[in-house]
């Protein structure tokens, strides 16, 4: 716990929200991509899975191993970027080169499972969370500045 620990914690949040923004923009850019890089179907929506950082795990009692206190936490980190495997959107377009050639779905094209409205709300959430973290940094900065004023007569 130092004077900058709150700022460092908020900085992890800022990085995580930046990454979320990147993922959302990638989703929107690929909203009509019908071939992924493996060539086995359309693009699927990415989403960010986050997990907390706890550096200072401490024991409440050395003889009671279930009493692990997680400490005050050190922020958030992105665990992985996961593919959303929800069902794909079907659009009827028989002239499309990626349309389904056989079966009862003949003539349909599998489009990515990306809803632009969902992505926009995600984008707004990410930018608001970023703003909240910036506010947090400004708050801790104001606190440190006040602490420095103690020394000034």
């Amino acid at each position: 716990m130092g004077i900058f620990s709150a700022i460092n914690t908020s900085a992890t949040g800022l990085s995580a929200q930046r990454l979320r923004m990147d993922v959302v923009s990638n989703n929107i850019a690929n909203a009509t991509t019908t071939r992924n890089s493996n060539g086995d179907g359309p693009f699927r929506r990415d989403r960010v899975i986050m997990t907390p950082i706890n550096l200072r795990t401490r024991w409440r009692s050395p003889v009671y191993p279930f009493g692990i206190a997680p400490g005050e936490g050190r922020g958030v980190k992105v665990m992985k970027i996961e593919k959303d495997m929800s069902p794909l959107r079907l659009v009827y377009d028989p002239t499309h080169p990626d349309s389904i050639k056989i079966g009862d779905k003949k003539g349909y094209v599998e489009m990515p499972n990306i809803n632009i409205v969902t992505e926009m709300t995600d984008m707004i959430t990410a930018s608001r969370s970023y703003e909240a973290n910036v506010q947090m940094i400004n708050g801790s900065k104001a606190m440190i500045n006040k602490a420095i004023e103690i020394g000034r007569a």
Partner: peptide, 21 residues
């Protein structure tokens, strides 16, 4: 990242203000 640069600059400024005090 932009925020890393800004945070580093702010940390430097706060540290030097503190030391100067």
């Amino acid at each position: 990242d932009v925020h890393e640069v800004m945070i580093a600059a702010e940390k430097a400024r706060l540290s030097i203000t503190f030391t100067k005090t």
